[in-house]
Design a protein around this nucleic acid. Sequence first.
DNA 1: CTCGACTCCTGTTAGC
DNA 2: TGCTAACAGGAGTCGA
Length: 260
Amino acid sequence: MPEGVEIEIYRRGAEAAVGRSIASVEAPDEWFLKGGLTPAEVTAAVTGRTVVAARARGKLLVLDLDDDTRVGLRFGMTGRLIVDDNASIDYLEYSSTRNDPAWDRFVLNFEDGGDLRLRDPRRLGGVSLDPDEDALGVDAFVIKPKQVRDRVAVGEVPLKARLLDQSRIAGVGNLIADETLWRAGLDPVRAAGSLTDDEVKKLVRHLRKVLADFLRDGGSHTGRLQPARVRGGLCPKDGTALLRREIGGRTTYSCAHHQR
DNA sequence: CTCGACTCCTGTTAGC
DNA sequence: TGCTAACAGGAGTCGA
């Protein structure tokens, strides 16, 4: 599903839109527009403008336009970005393997004839104008150990829930969180503030490696834990029956043996 | 401010 | 074969 890794892949795909002018907009699904935005408003705001940058912050993809308007794209759990008929990602966990244009919720048509499409079967994504980027924490790709210690590894909230809190660290979704904690040998229900300095360092080290691995391998579904994230799954490290719990409101798989 | 519970969305799949 | 119900999770809202 689209987590920070997928958003970075989308961002690279969206680089193809930089320098191009927007001729028209398709916003057929008003529900998909967030913050009270209407199709008429978004059309007026972006038509005739040129894309000058594509940026990622956590799970938010931002297109900067030449008049400082910012277009915020969110992908929910099933959204994909398609630029000029090129999808940067073909497979998304929990999404459909079909490819139906009826799921195009937002389209920018460029003056040169190409287009940028946000295709989201389950409509959990959305489009906003001038999104509040400051509400997001430091992006997981660049967060430093000290920032993790100060903003993530604090309080009595379960560690897993903390990692999913986008205001503290942006871009970690359910699969990245489970894989990171599994590799780091940390129990997802541990109080976030209970980690020692060494455990914080270990957490950051594994997070960075997980992000790099997932980026290299093409998405957040490519983890070593992933095949075992099913009912009755066994830990790929030691064969122990995995625990399946709901933590932070999300299905969480972890190993009772080596995650402490 | 913090935090857990709840709600939204719909394609897919398990099970009868 | 056809149907129903459960399931998936990112993000916003609400109340304690």
